[in-house]
């Protein structure tokens, strides 16, 4: 099985910075339909800061935000978490911060892990989102991308799929889940203020999560 190394994870995080920058307008547009029109802006700001933080750490000697050695999964994810909390603002900052914080607390490997561990880390992170946001599947949130994706990843992992296969299966379900948010009525977050009128729009959080999984399937395989 292909191992997920710490460099690959850094590449993934850098890629996310590019992707959110490229999709900044798109995500913001989605958010302007049913939210407060800042999702793209917030993620772009957050992941640019993540990139800067990692580059600072890697350029030698400078300690990460968590004050730990930058060269372990745990410290890397904690740095990502703190940076996102500080810079994203709003609910998505707290939610993504929780996601990476839970991962940093759960990760056992130091510099490389297998696909199975990656899936279990995603599960821990998403559990954190669920707990923090008090949301369920079907509420028209990022969970509608993540939960089907995790089920597919779990199935692929238990039937012995490679990291690539696991992530591809996850992406397929993530995309389906993301698309399903279009017909849902928002029950959480600011979009829920719109009630029925939130129907007919993709949830921006579901879309940004799908972009995250898509990047993972391309880079972490």
């Amino acid at each position: 099985m292909n191992m997920v190394t710490i460099d690959k994870v850094k590449d993934w995080l850098f890629a996310l910075s590019d992707i959110y920058s490229e999709n900044r307008e798109y995500l913001t547009e989605l958010d302007s339909a049913i939210g407060d029109a800042d999702h793209g802006i917030n993620l772009d700001r957050g992941f640019s800061a993540v990139r800067a933080e990692i580059e600072k750490m890697s350029s030698g000697g400078v300690q990460g935000a968590a004050g730990q050695s930058p060269d372990s999964f745990s410290s890397l994810f904690k740095t990502v978490s703190m940076t996102l909390i500080k810079t994203v603002g709003g609910a998505s900052g707290a939610l993504l911060g929780t996601f990476f914080l839970r991962i940093s607390q759960a990760v056992k490997s130091e510099k490389e892990m297998d696909g199975r561990e990656l899936v279990s880390l995603f599960e821990k992170g998403v559990e954190g989102i669920k707990m923090r946001g008090h949301a369920e599947e079907g509420d028209k949130t990022m969970l509608d991308t993540w939960l089907p994706a995790l089920r597919a990843m779990g199935d692929a992992a238990s039937s012995g799929g490679s990291t690539g296969e696991i992530l591809s299966a996850g992406l397929k379900s993530a995309e389906a889940g993301m698309n399903a948010t279009k017909d849902m009525k928002a029950l959480k977050g600011r979009a829920s203020y719109l009630g029925e009128r939130s129907i007919g729009h993709l949830d921006p959080g579901a879309v940004s999560s799908c972009l995250m999984i898509k990047a993972a399937s391309e880079i972490l395989r």
Partner: peptide, 15 residues
């Protein structure tokens, strides 16, 4: 406030 310098509206768990 949020966004590092706290000049954006929002909340920051670390703060």
């Amino acid at each position: 406030g949020a966004g590092g310098s706290s000049d954006l509206s929002g909340t920051d768990a670390t703060d």
